[in-house]
Amino acid sequence: MLEGKVKWFNSEKGFGFIEVEGQDDVFVHFSAIQGEGFKTLEEGQAVSFEIVEGNRGPQAANVTKEA
């Protein structure tokens, strides 16, 4: 699992990017966010995740919000 911070997330469109120190930003789709209820992320929020190869390159999977 990697750790990063949410760079930005558009809850209307359901996607955004996660910043990872020393690496390129990683695309995140709302469907990759773990948990119940409305799936969104806040700018600057700490998250842990895995990287998988998507249709358009690397993207986040199994995203969990850090306490």
Rank of each mutant, 00 (worst) to 15 (best):
H29L: 07
F38A: 15
A61T: 15
F17K: 05
A46D: 11
I33K: 01
E43L: 08
E66I: 11
E3G: 12
G4A: 03
S48D: 06
T64R: 09
T64M: 14
I51G: 02
V63Y: 00
E50H: 15
S31W: 09
M1R: 14
W8D: 02
Q45L: 12
L41H: 01
E3Y: 11
K13N: 06
E42T: 13
N62W: 03
F9I: 03
F17L: 05
K5E: 05
E12G: 13
V20N: 04
A60I: 02
F15H: 15
Q23T: 12
E19W: 09
G54E: 11
E50Q: 15
A32S: 13
E12A: 13
V52M: 09
I51R: 10
E43Y: 15
A60S: 05
V28T: 04
A67N: 12
A46F: 10
F49I: 04
S11H: 12
I18P: 00
K39C: 04
K39P: 09
F27P: 03
E53M: 11
S48I: 07
A46S: 11
G54H: 05
L2Q: 14
T64Y: 07
V6I: 12
E66M: 13
G57N: 08
L2W: 13
Q45V: 14
F17A: 04
F15W: 12
Q34D: 05
E50P: 01
E53N: 10
S11I: 13
D25Q: 06
W8T: 03
V47D: 00
I18Y: 00
N62A: 07
V63A: 03
G14D: 01
S48E: 06
L2E: 06
E66Y: 11
E21L: 11
L2R: 07
A67Q: 12
G44A: 08
A67Y: 13
F38M: 15
G4E: 01
V28S: 02
G14C: 03
E53L: 08
E50T: 15
G16R: 00
E43I: 13
K65T: 12
E19A: 13
F9T: 02
V52Q: 12
E53H: 08
V26R: 03
Q59K: 07
A67K: 15
E21M: 14
D25G: 04
D25E: 06
I51T: 10
E36R: 10
F15T: 04
M1D: 05
W8C: 05
I33Q: 02
K5H: 06
V20R: 12
F9W: 11
H29I: 05
I33R: 01
E12W: 11
G54W: 14
G37P: 11
M1Y: 10
S31T: 06
V6C: 05
G44R: 08
E43V: 10
V20K: 10
F38N: 07
P58S: 12
A67W: 09
F38D: 14
F38S: 10
E12F: 12
L2H: 13
T40Q: 11
S31G: 12
R56I: 09
D24Q: 14
I51Y: 07
A61K: 15
F27M: 03
R56L: 12
V6A: 03
Q59C: 04
Q59D: 02
G37T: 10
V20S: 12
E36N: 08
S48W: 07
V26W: 03
S31M: 14
E53D: 12
F30M: 06
F30C: 04
K7H: 08
F27L: 04
D24C: 05
T64L: 11
E36Y: 11
M1I: 08
E12D: 13
V63M: 03
L41P: 02
